[in-house]
C-alpha cells in the first residue's frame, strides 16, 4: 500500500520534472522560460529531498532556483530592453 503510493508519488515527481524541463526549453518567450526554469529548480529540490539528499535539495532551492532564477530574470529583462531599443541608445547608459 505504502510502496504503491510512494511509487505513484515518484512517477508524478518524475513526469512533472521532465514536463517542466521540456516546457522551459520550448517556450518562445524568454521570461516565461525563466519562470518555468525556476519552477523546474524548485521541483528538482523536491526530487533531491525525496532521494534523501537534503544538502543538495537546500543548495538547489537556494542557488539553482532562487539566485539563478533572479539572475536570469534580470538578464532576460535586459535582453528584452536591448531588443526593444533595437540599435537605439541604450537606456541604461551601460553599453559596453
Amino acid at each position: 500500500m505504502t510502496a504503491g503510493l510512494l511509487l505513484l508519488f515518484d512517477l508524478v515527481l518524475v513526469t512533472t520534472l521532465v514536463g517542466l524541463a521540456i516546457a522551459a526549453l520550448i517556450s518562445p518567450d524568454l521570461r516565461r522560460a525563466v519562470m518555468l526554469f525556476i519552477a523546474f529548480g524548485l521541483w528538482l529540490a523536491l526530487v533531491w529531498a525525496r532521494l534523501r539528499a537534503p544538502d543538495v535539495a537546500l543548495a538547489e532551492a537556494a542557488i539553482g532556483a532562487g539566485l539563478g532564477g533572479a539572475l536570469m530574470l534580470a538578464a532576460a529583462r535586459r535582453a528584452a530592453r536591448r531588443a526593444s531599443a533595437n540599435g537605439g541608445i541604450d537606456a541604461e547608459g551601460g553599453e559596453a
Binding site: 537534503p54 544538502d55 535539495a57 537546500l58 543548495a59 537556494a62 542557488i63 539566485l67 533572479a70
Partner: peptide, 17 residues
C-alpha cells in the same frame, strides 16, 4: 546536519537581491 557555507551564502545573497 544539512547546511553549510554555500546554502548560508545563498541566503545572504538573497538578502542582497
Amino acid at each position: 546536519a544539512p547546511g553549510g557555507a554555500f546554502q548560508a551564502g545563498a541566503l545572504l545573497g538573497a538578502a542582497g537581491v
